[in-house]
Computed example of a mutant assay.
Amino acid sequence: MIFAWLHLKSCEPPPSQQGEQIERLIISKHVKINRRWLPLNALRAFEAVGKQLSFTGGAATLSVSQSAMSRHVSALEDLLGELLFERDAGRLALTPAGTELLAVVSKSFERIEQTMNAIRDESVPARAMRLHVPPSFLQQLFMPMLGEFRRDHPEIRIDICSANVTGLPPTEIDMAIIYDRPNVDDWVTDLLWMVRVEPLCSPETAKAAKGKSMQEFLVDQELLHLKLDNQPRDLLWSDYLRRQGVSVSAKGGLAFDTSVALAKYAMASGGVLLGDVDMFASEIEKGLLVAPYDAVIEDGYGYYLKLRADDLADPAVAAFRTWLIGQFSSFNP
């Protein structure tokens, strides 16, 4: 099957000039796409529409006509044999194929832009690597490690964002340390460590456990919950209690966004958290948190480093990944 490929010339006329100059290149559907004729202007149009989720908004971004944008996207869909947008009553939504392509196109254009600027103006610093780190991991473990990395690699700029999410954040990133259950996706994934939990509380609260079974102790305590995206608030406690054979309701108690908030509340105001014994090893060693029972289990969650395969070509990303994996290969829970 033959498809007509629409390619805008290098300079798109302004909106006031509606007679766009269009060059047609015939591409056979069965010919493998290669870099010699990548449809760069069409990809620019697709990116603009994808970010705005609007042909009108995308056209305004590039200062071209809406009809030209529509033809570019339609031709790109024809070439790929896949819809990139779902069109419903004038509303646009990216399809899975569109979501996948948009991420790659945006990052590629961004890197080309930054590299060209850096070459043209030597005063422009190298692009900062964007890294997501969960808040509790950042505060408890990563801050001291980061200082060591900065001493070894002062030339690598890092922008760190931190959000209370399970799994990958919605923001644009180069790498992410995430808290999640094991899963399979298109990202390169390295396990840093599996989370091990048990009931933790302040020394004062732990006094009530003396001579009691776990069930007798917990039935009189406020259980503190870690909130997880799209999961019941009592998920972790209910699973732990079931596996321990303890018949205690986990429905009540306070819930917090981060493990650090759980620990601080428990130390200051009471209650029992299901705490990561490795993350809070320092507090346990200092006696600020106490484990009344020796009942550690892996809860199925872990901390993972995730990045896209093509980002391994970035020396900063590759160096950070090698360093971080080395840090946790010697981590001894």
Rank of each mutant, 00 (worst) to 15 (best):
S74T: 10
S74W: 11
A75D: 10
L76V: 03
L76P: 07
L76A: 13
E77F: 04
E77C: 05
E77K: 04
E77A: 08
E77P: 03
L79C: 05
L79E: 04
L79M: 12
L79R: 14
L80H: 09
G81W: 08
G81Y: 12
G81E: 13
E82N: 07
E82T: 02
E82L: 06
L83N: 15
F85E: 10
F85C: 12
F85T: 04
F85M: 06
F85Y: 11
E86M: 06
E86C: 03
R87Q: 09
R87D: 08
D88E: 13
A89D: 05
A89E: 11
A89M: 05
A89S: 11
A89H: 13
G90E: 08
G90I: 09
R91P: 01
R91S: 07
A93R: 15
A93N: 10
A93Y: 03
A93Q: 14
A93F: 05
T95N: 11
T95Y: 11
P96A: 11
P96F: 13
P96Y: 07
A97M: 13
A97E: 10
A97F: 02
A97Q: 15
A97Y: 06
G98C: 08
G98K: 10
T99C: 13
T99S: 15
E100I: 00
L101C: 06
L101F: 10
L102P: 04
L102C: 06
L102R: 14
L102D: 04
V104K: 15
V104C: 14
V104R: 15
V104A: 15
V104Q: 15
V105D: 09
V105N: 09
V105H: 08
K107M: 07
S108N: 14
S108V: 04
E110C: 01
R111G: 02
R111N: 01
R111T: 00
R111Y: 02
I112R: 14
I112Q: 12
I112P: 00
I112H: 04
E113G: 04
E113V: 01
Q114C: 02
Q114W: 02
Q114T: 00
Q114V: 01
Q114Y: 02
Q114H: 07
M116Y: 07
N117W: 01
N117K: 13
N117I: 00
A118N: 11
A118S: 14
A118F: 07
I119L: 15
R120I: 00
R120T: 07
R120A: 11
E122D: 09
E122V: 08
E122G: 11
S123F: 03
V124D: 04
P125M: 09
P125F: 01
A126E: 11
R127L: 01
R127K: 13
A128D: 01
A128S: 08
A128C: 03
A128T: 01
A128F: 04
M129T: 06
R130D: 02
R130L: 03
R130S: 00
R130V: 00
L131F: 05
H132Y: 06
H132I: 05
H132L: 08
V133G: 13
V133L: 15
V133C: 14
V133D: 08
V133T: 11
P134A: 12
P134S: 07
P134V: 05
P135N: 06
P135K: 05
P135D: 14
P135G: 06
P135M: 11
S136H: 03
S136G: 02
F137Q: 11
F137P: 01
F137I: 06
